[in-house]
Design a protein around this nucleic acid. Structure first.
Lengths: 338, 338
DNA sequence: CTGAAAGCGCTTACAG
DNA sequence: CTGAAAGCGCTTACAG
């Protein structure tokens, strides 16, 4: 591979101006169809590829978008960010955009700032929303195009999310109609918007059936407290443990197993999020599934639209699937075992 | 935030030339220390940040590196690529480089080509090596700086890897000296160099002790065949199942559990790779651990050196840890149970 | 429909 | 030690 050929080279070779070549490529401005074809053919032949950097400088654009990936998340959440990243990459690739990752701790915006200050990207996809969202605030203040994967109360943030609230509402409702009255909801960090939404869905369903008094919500659980909480819950007459996500669910199942308790015979379990971690579990776990890749694609598509100056929807809610499985099955004659 | 300030703005404000400002920032070329300080102070004050794109164009550099992340890997391998990516990002960030991800199927180099043709990056980190390594070949042919995480027989490829061969050799040896003579090695895709290296380490140890005849290697296992293979192995007098990686190990453990077999009482198990998947297993699993983040950092550091035109080591081998756990423990009076 | 020219914001010989 | 000027490879009013 010899030295890269430039727009000037093709202009000279064809005895036209750089302007014309540029126009033939971009499609902007009129070019005689004969000339255009000639140019395109030559480009194809000599596989000329425009220098994206030069193009970027001239247009003050980079044809790159940034994606923030938290580097402090639980291992269980990895598949989510991974799939989301895949979605973004795929979508970006379709329009010759590339994606630049910014690994960031919770709300450390140093790297994000650098990205923006160095003008390395045309926009940002935030893969997580926080209740106090420093990255989002920074982007908003500086007028940088961005879209958040997740929900935010801030109406100025363009957001795409799954409809967690409805999902949790629906699932809880189904369980209630199946006869369950007493739930214990295990919930970790409420700093994440998604957990708030899920809790809201659950609460709504429970209230609707006037079951609020029979259920308990345990907030800010962590690896250490779960064992203790499970023991505590077992002393109550809770029928079903609802887990805010699969990470919690895994620990709960683990603890139940150690207590020699059977699911769903002794107690029922369901999760508000099913990453692949739960997939192979026996018994299979009732849970909600979301398509993270789709989320990424949609977020990227929206971001690209914003960059192009198009109008976009402020908030998009994508669907979900409810997967009713063994873990919440009503076992006939269950009480015989108690 | 108003319009970005340029090098020209600071030059005018200070009554010096752009040249001088540029030199004060880059440190290249002589500048009077008084002027230099004045400039630096002004820059700090008005937080001027050079436009990386313009800089890139002038130097024909991008201050970006690309990292390929396979999008076809097993979920179990995710933590590896994730940590590797973290390492690369961290290291790159130290020198104001950014990293651009290229999701690629096995050996689909389309996106890679685009990245290179569009001059979006100054170099590439390959996160996996293949026996027939199209991406590496392409990069080599086109003289693009790159380093591979993993090993390759091609001496022209700058590579950084853990010393899998020694690691597997050591672990196997330890197990042999512990009294185990009969192994079954489960190995999946031998297209990946890493699997070849591991197998080599195992073979070397076994041969050294003249135990080759007592062991069997099962190649190209997959999710479906593992159940069958475990059953088959159980009919032999294999004492220990060695798993090429944790993904295989999880399935093996799963199958053994379904067969109501106890580890290590009934049969011993060890894995040549411990991602976090195995960490919480009971019993704890004897395995090899590697520091993927370190690998990423080292790879990135090396790549950056290459880009700077420095000489680098052709092949770097990083260390490993052997974690001897419950799963290979010799149980006294084991045969009583048989 | 086509071009000459200025401009994007830097860097870097070259000259002083 | 410091500057004027050309150049990196594109795009885009402006003019014809």
């Amino acid at each position: 591979m010899s030295k890269k050929i430039t727009i000037e080279d093709v202009a000279e070779a064809l005895n036209v101006s750089k302007t014309t070549v540029s126009r033939a490529i971009s499609g902007k401005g009129r070019v005689g169809s004969a000339t255009k074809e000639k140019i395109l053919a030559y480009i194809e032949e000599n596989n000329y590829v425009p220098n994206a950097i030069a193009k970027g400088l001239a247009q003050s654009r980079t044809y790159n978008i940034g994606i923030t990936v938290p580097d402090d998340f639980a291992l269980m959440d990895l598949p989510f960010f991974q799939k989301c990243l895949m979605g973004v990459c795929e979508q970006a690739g379709n329009t010759d955009y590339d994606v630049l990752v910014s690994m960031t701790k919770n709300d450390d915006i140093n790297h994000l700032e650098r990205l923006i200050n160095n003008r390395k990207v045309d926009g940002i996809v935030l893969t997580r929303t926080l209740t106090k969202d420093l990255p989002a605030e920074y982007l908003l203040e500086n007028n940088i195009p961005f879209v958040a994967v997740g929900s935010s109360p801030n109406k100025n943030i363009i957001q795409v999310d799954n409809d967690h609230e409805s999902a949790c509402y629906d699932l809880t409702k189904l369980l209630i109609e199946q006869g369950i009255k007493r739930f214990s909801l295990f919930c970790d960090n409420t700093e994440y918007m998604v957990n708030k939404m899920r809790m809201a869905g659950f609460t709504k369903a429970v209230e609707e059936y006037n079951l609020s008094d029979l259920s308990t919500v345990y907030e800010n659980t962590n690896d250490e407290s779960i064992d203790y909480l499970v023991d505590r819950v077992l002393k109550t007459n809770t029928e079903c443990i609802l887990c805010m996500d699969d990470s919690i669910c895994v620990r709960v199942l683990d603890k139940l197993k150690r207590n020699d308790l059977e699911v769903p015979t002794d107690i029922k379990v369901a999760s508000f999020y099913n990453s692949s971690v739960l997939e192979r579990n026996i018994p299979s776990i009732t849970s909600l599934t979301f398509d993270a890749k789709e989320l990424g694609k949609e977020a990227c598509k929206t971001l690209l639209s914003i960059i192009e100056g198009e109008e976009v929807q402020k908030r998009q809610l994508l669907g979900y699937k409810i997967s009713m499985q063994q873990s919440t099955k009503t076992i006939m004659g269950k009480d015989s075992k108690k």
